[in-house]
Amino acid sequence: MTTAIASAEARPRAETPAAAADKPGLAATPPLRRREMAFGMWVFLTTETLFFGVLFFAYAAMRFAHPAAFAAASRHTDVAMGTLNTAVLLTSSVTMALAVEAAEIGRARIAARLMTATLALGIVFLAIKGYAYHREYTEHLFPGAAFHFAGPLAGGAETFFWIYFVTTGFHALHLAIGVGVVGFMAWRLARGGLAAQSAASIVNAGLYWHFVDIVWIFLYPALYLVSRS
């Protein structure tokens, strides 16, 4: 990785001797380069926070404008599937976190297996989500010409479901990207060990995965639990 070495030359501060013990080829990203990469990922996640923040903002403004309709519409979401999916995603974060730990201590094969588990859970989430979408579509909850919602709150309910589909859609898109990245890294890790797939990149993939998890942690009460009692 030429760029890593290149920017490692212009070091601002003296490096710890730890760097000297790096075995070539094995998680050989210099520590400062790793910090650059991790910090870069955090800044990226900051932008993602604001990206999703707009969706939460739209949600908040519309819920404030149509409180009763949001309550009624939210009761039409499938809380069981939503809860199950939350559990699936939270669990996938645990396996991903463990995969990162495994990569950090050089256990490439364990890391690859944990990442496979992570992406499997991600696919389970997407499958459940897809099934939920299908059910909502057949129940005429998809906004548009076929939308049907009994009672005077139909307008606000349609807005709720618009936000529901847009936010969960953007979330699912991010998760699908995460599945792709984690899958690709797991494949390289299984084939060539940490020489092929550096631990530093896996750390970043983990940060991204956890972020997508956090978005869902907030989407869950916002969409499924508005008014259940």
């Binding site: 969706l55 403004a61 548009g144 807005t159 618009w162």
Partner: peptide, 21 residues
């Protein structure tokens, strides 16, 4: 910039879908 990005995305979706916020 992310705020602009998502806002334009919502605008585009609303224009295509004829429903929105």
């Amino acid at each position: 910039t992310p705020v602009l990005g998502m806002t334009l995305a919502l605008l585009g979706i609303e224009r295509i879908w004829h429903i929105g916020i």
